[in-house]
Amino acid sequence: MVKVNWTKFVWIKDALPKHCFIGWLVMHGRLLTRDRLKRMGITMDDTCILCDSAPESHAHLFFACIFSQKCLQLLSQTLGCHLPTVGWTAWWLSQSFRSQVQKRSVAAHLLSLIHAIWWCRNRCRLEGYLPRPETVLAHVVHGIKL
């Protein structure tokens, strides 16, 4: 297994601190996803609330969920680069970004998207409302521009 220093990916000056923090929790598998809540005996249902087709884990929620994949696809189009839904370690290590600014920009957008997906998941769970992926992307891009 390839060891990656995710610190340089997560803690960047171009991202909001709350995006960095959520990204750090995701990289360490520490968010209370439904699979973790089920193991703790807090809930009986571990089904992903965004797609209703698989158990909600970090890997599923942020990379394999149909909703998240659509968001990643839209972000890929916006950034003009291919963002994978699997194999993040190999992809990040293989990237030859034109500059550190471009590398930080891609990381900031991804961290913002991770935060937005977590926000959507919680909003859907608590309020029963799931925004469209296009709305999520607009929120991500707007947050980065600020």
Rank of each mutant, 00 (worst) to 15 (best):
V10D: 05
P17C: 06
L25K: 07
V26R: 00
H28L: 15
R30C: 11
L31E: 00
T33S: 07
D35N: 08
D35Q: 11
R36H: 10
L37K: 02
L37M: 11
K38I: 12
R39H: 05
G41V: 13
I42F: 12
T43I: 15
M44P: 00
D45Y: 05
D46F: 04
C48W: 08
C48F: 09
D52M: 13
D52E: 13
E56L: 09
H58V: 11
H58N: 08
A59N: 15
H60W: 13
F62G: 00
A64R: 08
A64F: 07
S68W: 07
Q69M: 14
K70A: 10
L74C: 04
T78M: 14
L79P: 00
L79M: 05
C81Y: 12
C81R: 12
H82F: 14
H82Q: 15
P84A: 09
P84E: 06
G87T: 05
W88S: 03
T89W: 07
A90F: 11
A90L: 14
W91A: 06
L93P: 08
L93M: 14
Q95V: 11
R98L: 12
V101A: 08
V101L: 02
K103V: 10
K103F: 03
S105K: 15
V106E: 00
V106S: 01
A108F: 01
A108P: 00
A108S: 11
L111M: 08
L111K: 02
S112T: 13
S112A: 14
H115T: 10
A116L: 04
I117F: 06
R121L: 07
R123I: 08
R125M: 08
R125N: 01
E127G: 02
Y129C: 13
Y129M: 12
L130R: 13
P131T: 05
E134T: 14
V136W: 01
A138I: 07
H139M: 12
V141N: 04
H142S: 15
